[in-house]
Design a protein around this nucleic acid. Structure first.
Lengths: 210, 210
DNA sequence: ATGGTCATGTAAATTGTTACATGATTAG
DNA sequence: CTAATCATGTAACAATTTACATGACCAT
């Protein structure tokens, strides 16, 4: 399971379950979600398997914290996971299933609205990443060589920017086709060509209003 | 749950659980996975809830088939799902978590290998979609106006092409940076700019060999 | 005192995966 | 007769989500 390995990776530095939850809600939120209850349970399982150790520590506010840290076996398990090569598990994309069934609404307008909502969502996500990117750029303005941690973090950030830009391009393209009602196969494949060879510039997007 | 709604969408035409499984393994395989055992279970639940009806029918080969079809309530449920706007649920991307922890391997070579494996996987996926696209194009060569079903299917196909191309671009970019060892923040942000404004042409990809 | 954040967890329900069981019909 | 495909499902387990329970400490 990937969550286990993520916990092993994060717990190179001792942390509590509560802190881990914050990490998931901030840095990891763009590519991994985890509930606090699941984190607590998984931490216990990993400790039982000897991949983590834990100890209590008093807290400034609230009840005592319980810190976890990766053991040697845990680190070895993590290495195996990474050495096993990249894992794809994002085999469930609801909005694509919805797109396929849009036809059953029998209303071109509702389909257009669907894609407009999609565009809004994507724009928000892209904007968030671009802001983080800008902030990181400011922070690092004077630094010459990056810490490895930051370096891979920047790669992940770049991934998100690529991803949402591509999705946005797809939505714009789809909207342009949708608005030009009674679409012909010619139009679709014109669009397909853009996907295949890359747009010279956004010739299709924002064409004619509905 | 999305699987429920996908079943409701597919069962506008009566089908058996076995047939549905084939649909998931072929057309849906690029964005949705479902096990046959789960399909059978969910069909029962949906029938119990009155969103589907079923009846037996003799089969040419093997045991009798059990066909399901969406009821009026089922169709209404589907409409609500679509009207609720696009759903994002792909919040688990293992290879990005792995990328963040690559730093712990402390071996630039292993990181490069990781990205090369990633590239191979992506190239396979992209190739498959391009082949489907080419086949669809051939099939539709003489047809003027598309059926709505095929139309939305083509949009979903375009999505995949956009998606994998963008991911491939990210991998190439990351590889170029990785191979240029001891990366500076300057290099990373050069790459970031490409992501932000779009590459003029693949100036970065396939730079210097390892 | 009321609500927010800190901090721990358990329990139940749902969803997803893997393994197993059964039996008919057809092609080699 | 053997394997593949057709076709149904159950059982057990694993992963995830949602709801609930508890209590300290801090600011208004």
């Amino acid at each position: 399971m990937s969550l286990d390995h993520i916990l092993l990776g994060l717990l190179r530095e001792p942390q509590s379950g509560y802190e881990l939850k914050n990490t998931f809600d901030t840095v990891f939120s763009h590519f991994w979600a985890a509930e606090i209850s699941q984190i607590y349970r998984q931490l216990k399982t990993l400790e039982r398997r000897g991949l983590l150790v834990s100890w209590g520590e008093p807290s400034d506010k609230g009840p005592p914290r319980k810190l976890y840290e990766t053991t040697a076996e845990g680190r070895s398990e993590l290495r195996d996971w990474l050495a096993g090569g990249p894992l794809f598990a994002d085999r469930r994309v609801p909005y694509l299933a919805q797109t396929l069934f849009l036809e059953q609404l029998k209303s071109r307008e509702e389909s257009v609205r669907f894609f407009e909502q999609l565009r809004e969502e994507i724009e928000i996500r892209l904007k968030v990443l671009l802001e983080i990117d800008a902030a990181v750029l400011l922070e690092q303005e004077e630094i010459e060589v990056l810490e490895d941690t930051d370096f891979y973090g920047q790669l992940v950030l770049n991934h998100g920017i690529h991803r949402w830009r591509a999705l946005l391009a797809w939505v714009e393209e789809s909207l342009a086709i949708l608005r030009n009602d009674s679409p012909s196969s010619e139009m679709l494949h014109q669009a397909g060509d853009l996907a295949r060879h890359g747009a010279p510039d956004s010739a299709l997007s924002e064409g004619q209003p509905s």
